[in-house]
Simulated scan of single mutants.
Amino acid sequence: MTDDKAEKTSAGSYASPPCLAHEIDPTYFDASNVDPEQARDVARWRKGKREELRAARKTLRVEEHASVSARIADALENVLSSKFNGAKGLTLSMYWPIKGEPDLRSLMAKLHSAGVVIALPIVEIKAAPLVFRLWTPETKMVRGDWNIPVPPADARILTPDISLAPLVGWDDKAYRLGYGGGYFDRTLASLDPRPFKIGIGYGSAKLATIFPQPHDIAMDLILTEDGVQAL
């Protein structure tokens, strides 16, 4: 799949979650908490790994992508059932997929019909925590930052009980490698209490480590097409 195909937002194609903007925030590493030279080395390594892993997942055929997405959706339903009794009445923040990420949009509608409150993350202020707006199948989406479909400004603001975080890479300690903008970690750090955090990605994206830094926040679990992979 090409990036051009991934950027489409029509039915059956891909769009983009605002929490995964690819731009690197140069202030994201806190030099007071980590050696600046080490932080730069890690940033360079992560940049290379992001490019490598994103290139690899572009090789997925459309049929393979659909199959893997369906398996992840099934695995997520199992987690919600076993840990949250189906999550009825709870707020679950999901995402709009980009560039070959697992596509769980059909599950969004299914969970909504089962009584789960669905929210989508929005960038209202650059380099600030995300906000989460209510989504339903009837929501009239508008174009947000990076031309991403998002719920409109008058949609209700919610605080998630459970939050999905699509990832580029992951490790056994349940740390996720994102796109480098820092939005998700920044948002988690601002939420009290923090939601239950589920990283969503491919089994093939496993790394020995992401070399976690002080600002990195581990997921509560990592979920791939093979089920729960890291706790």
Rank of each mutant, 00 (worst) to 15 (best):
T59P: 14
V62A: 07
V62F: 01
E64C: 11
S67N: 14
V68S: 15
V68P: 10
A70M: 05
R71E: 06
A73R: 10
D74Q: 13
E77I: 12
N78E: 10
N78P: 07
N78L: 04
V79M: 08
L80Q: 12
S82F: 00
K83P: 10
F84L: 04
G86N: 05
A87M: 13
K88Q: 03
G89M: 02
G89W: 01
G89Y: 02
G89V: 02
T91K: 03
T91F: 02
L92A: 13
L92W: 14
S93M: 02
W96A: 08
I98Q: 00
E101L: 11
P102V: 11
L107G: 09
G115D: 15
V116D: 09
A119E: 08
A119G: 14
A119P: 15
L120A: 08
L120G: 06
I122D: 04
E124W: 02
K126Y: 00
T136L: 14
R143T: 07
D145Q: 08
N147M: 03
P149T: 12
P151M: 14
D154F: 12
R156C: 04
R156M: 05
R156A: 12
I157D: 13
I157S: 07
L158T: 13
P160E: 06
P160T: 07
I162S: 02
S163E: 03
P166L: 12
L167K: 06
V168I: 04
W170L: 01
W170K: 03
W170T: 00
W170G: 00
K173L: 04
K173M: 10
A174G: 07
Y175F: 07
R176G: 07
L177P: 02
